[in-house]
Design a protein around this nucleic acid. Structure first.
Lengths: 189, 189
DNA sequence: CCCTTCGGAGAACGATCGTTCTCCCTCGCT
DNA sequence: AGCGAGGGAGAACGATCGTTCTCCGAAGGG
């Protein structure tokens, strides 16, 4: 066995990074395998050795984005939230920073489920699992703050609403609005 | 002049209805012009006489859906809302009924903007205009209820969050959750 | 120095799809 | 009856794209 393993891993990372960027920029269907090959700087043969088909690559990109989102969000919350309630509100500060990035084009799960969900159950499953994971994370924060359990669904709905609205309207305002709404809802009774 | 005009109008309606159904079922890119022709029961020649290209048909479908949504929603609100605040909450009852329909597949504007927005500014514009119109309608209801203006954005965010979440998760619960959140937010201070 | 093996570059293939074109039938007029 | 126009059905065309194949050059072992 030569350096095949590390080589393949490095290929995977570069391909995933390139595909994620291109899918985010232009949507899945508008990006061809050849564009991904060019952006990743690998020959087509290695691309297909790493991912046997475009479907598999799409799913891998979504799964990686799910991991990355979860890690980045919880790291942000750990850094910026000092009280249990502050940790919940920090989620919306995180959204605010995200929406402000120049390459923000909406939530890739909302976008991709809208684009491919009707035709690819696998994509829908991944999007559903991702949104469920976000809800479960919020449920942890809610429990830590000693708040009633149903606030988790409420916060998830606010987050998704902010992502959908910001993605379409092209503004970061929805993050701040959702934060304010969360503040009011957490204070309520 | 023969019956060309009414004929063309009738073609348009049938094509728009068929395309709207198919786009909703499978997404825009997964539906070919030939499938639309078959579903509408018109020859390809008349399809292209009514809409010179697929792009134009997509935009027409979205614009018709925008009109239809606005009319249906405001009719529902007029019918089901007795007080100014009740009219606001009726918006979420409307969403609840909509999400419960067997063919509900999410908001076509959220889905289509996610699918084509990156590549078609026209689609993004229509989706933005539609979401702005929803916000403006909510602003009317908010003003009629004597509530502060910023509640319009809040309600729009709740509605979009419910649509996005329900579309992905495949459940109607988000409508009821959004309704409850709206109730609390309208009661707040 | 030859032979084999591997991988890279990109041509080729097959399918799909938006759009146009061809062919033929029908209908109305003279 | 003969003829021209219009329209219907679907074949054809051109482009795109996912996937596979071919060809060639480089590297390494005998």
């Amino acid at each position: 066995m030569t350096s095949t393993d590390t080589g393949a891993l490095s290929d995977s990372s570069r391909i995933l990074a390139a595909a994620q960027r291109l899918f985010n920029e232009s949507g899945v269907q508008a990006v061809g395998m050849d564009a991904i090959r060019a952006a990743a700087g690998v020959p087509l043969k290695r691309l297909y050795r790493a991912f046997p088909a475009k479907d598999a690559l799409v799913q891998a990109v979504l799964e990686e984005r799910d991991r990355e989102f979860g890690e980045t969000l919880s790291a942000y919350v750990d850094t910026h939230g000092d009280t249990p309630r502050g940790r919940i509100l920090a989620v919306f500060d995180y959204l605010d920073e995200w929406f402000g990035q120049a390459d923000f084009r909406g939530c890739v799960f909302i976008n991709t489920a809208g684009e491919l969900g009707a035709v690819s159950p696998a994509v829908t499953d991944i999007a559903r699992t991702h949104k469920q994971a976000l809800r479960d994370y919020l449920a942890e924060l809610v429990a830590d703050a000693g708040l009633p359990e149903d606030r988790a669904d409420q916060l998830a709905l606010l987050a998704n609403g902010a992502m959908a609205t910001a993605g379409i309207m092209g503004t970061r305002d929805p993050a701040r609005q959702a934060r304010e709404m969360a503040r009011v809802l957490l204070a309520a009774r």
